[in-house]
Design a protein around this nucleic acid. Structure first.
Length: 438
RNA sequence: GCCCCGGUGGUGUAGCCCGGUUAGCAUGCGGGCCUGUCGAGCCCGCGACCCGGGUUCAAAUCCCGGCCGGGGCGCCA
């Protein structure tokens, strides 16, 4: 092992082009491949942006450089200083003739998987060695796209007048009932990990009016599927003086914006993922009421009693019928959480929506109740105790505006964009019932 | 939690149905040859049957249990 010293990268591998012929450069990265021909050694050096060939001819480089090159194995960390050479026989017509190599760190073999991708590995093996897995272009592409998705969401919502906020993830009581919570010990007191920023973001509309949060939520459900995790990142939005229709409109324009940005900024990544067919969806997205969806399913032989949630096989059938993005609106009030507003003219139906992509639910939202008495009534109807919500409910005495919002699962959106089947592919270090490490 | 399928060198696999070979292949790692490779090539070597019990002269192979994994479903404001 040698120190980095005063060496700093002058170019990413992808920036080494024939136009730099004759220039001395310093590149840093990992030994991707070695082609040792005896007195001529080729090192393929890989960094985040790609690969570049380092050429070490015995009779043209210092003796110690040649000796070091001979000792390298795959994934050793090196820095190389040398002269760029335009050469037709080299990959991409360019290579670096190494003058000096610094071996910054050695690998301790065997590696748990092959970053060069010559040998396949199971998802489980890949997740157990996620850092190595992330060196594969296919894996990294997903998270580069994730970055652009996050960036474009922030850009769009900021332009729409929303303010990004952060709400507590350690909370005192069960916020909404429903999903199971992870208990934590908070200096001897019982606390929980937040399942949703729902109540906080609603309260914030009474001051900041238009807010969004991108953050983790925690759900202690023992589900075992390709679309559920116990820790997930939600994009949550809440908007004062607005209804479900208004926030659906924001959501569909946001989705189109995200797709547009990914398509224009991630063409390389989409190509790696075989997703060059990605299309920016046209707005507005189709809207179907819950009742219309039941009718549609009935036409395809699936009978679901009005009022019940849609089971997975029904969703899959729906995904065959409706391929792209769409909304399911006007869900039965009973099947939605207590804070969702029932329709004034027909309280059995709520001003709610799910945002779907094929069979996959990406987001849900609706108009919220801002009337305290109605909210208390709905709490009781859902079997919840209003006393547990007193800190939340008192805000409704302080001038709560009418408001609406939604929550969008970030990784599920990424699944759609990248066309991957398992949500674990779209989370760096996924947490599910059985996986707590790494 | 339920159902189905699976578990063989570090990784990915063949063999299992129909029990008996030195458990095959690829990749990797170690050694050797090689000055234009580009998933370099060639030669030599290293390294594996998830755990426990049962059946049998004999188990990677058949049976039972456990653990782990994959898929489906359930659960999922």
């Amino acid at each position: 092992m040698e120190p980095l010293g005063d060496w700093r990268r002058t170019h990413w591998s992808s920036e080494i082009t024939p136009a730099l012929d004759g220039t001395t450069v310093t590149v840093c990265g990992w030994v991707h491949r070695i082609r040792d021909l005896g007195r001529l050694v080729f090192i393929v050096l890989r960094d985040r942006e790609g690969v570049v060939q380092i050429t070490i001819p015995k009779d043209k480089v210092p003796e110690h450089t040649f000796e070091k090159a001979k000792k390298l194995i795959r994934e050793d960390v090196i820095a190389v200083r040398g002269k760029v050479r335009f050469y037709e026989k080299a990959p991409n017509n360019v290579e670096i003739i190494a003058n000096e190599i610094r071996i910054l760190n050695k690998v301790s073999p065997p590696l748990p998987l092959d970053p060069a991708g010559d040998v396949d590995a199971d998802l489980d093996t890949r997740l157990n060695a996620r850092i190595i897995d992330l060196r594969r272009p296919q894996t990294f592409a997903i998270f580069r796209i994730n970055h652009i998705v996050l960036q474009s969401i922030r850009e769009f919502l900021t332009n729409e007048g929303f303010i990004e906020v952060n709400t507590p993830k350690i909370i005192a009581t069960a916020t909404e009932g429903g999903t199971a919570l992870f208990p934590v010990s908070y200096f001897g007191r019982q606390a929980f990990l937040a399942q949703s920023p729902q109540l906080y973001k609603e309260e914030l509309t009474a001051a900041l009016e238009k807010v969004f949060e991108i953050g983790p939520v925690f759900r202690a459900e023992e589900h075992n599927t390709t679309r559920h995790l116990c820790e997930l990142v939600m994009v949550d939005l809440e908007c004062a003086f607005a209804t479900a229709d208004d926030v659906m409109n924001i959501l569909e324009r946001l989705i189109a914006h995200v797709f547009r940005e990914v398509k224009s900024k991630c063409s390389k990544e989409l190509k790696i993922l075989n997703r060059e067919d990605l299309e920016v969806p046209g707005t507005p997205f189709p809207r179907y009421t819950y009742t219309q969806v039941l009718e549609l399913l009935r036409e395809h032989g699936i009978e679901i009693p009005w009022g019940e949630d849609l089971p997975t096989p029904a969703l899959r059938k729906l995904g065959e019928i409706l391929k792209g993005p769409y909304f399911i609106t006007e869900w039965p009030t009973e099947s939605k959480p207590f804070y969702i507003k029932p329709k004034d003219e027909d309280p059995k139906v709520s001003e709610s929506f799910d945002f779907m992509w094929g069979w996959l639910e990406l987001a849900s939202g609706g108009t919220r109740i801002h009337n305290k008495e109605l909210l208390i009534k709905r709490l009781k109807e859902q079997g919840l105790n209003p006393k547990s919500f007193e800190y939340h409910l008192r805000v409704f005495d302080w001038g709560m505006p009418p408001h609406a919002g939604w929550g969008l699962g970030l990784a599920r959106l990424l699944m759609v964009i990248c066309n991957v089947r398992n949500i674990r592919e779209c989370v760096l270090f996924p947490r599910d019932k059985s996986r707590l490490v790494p």
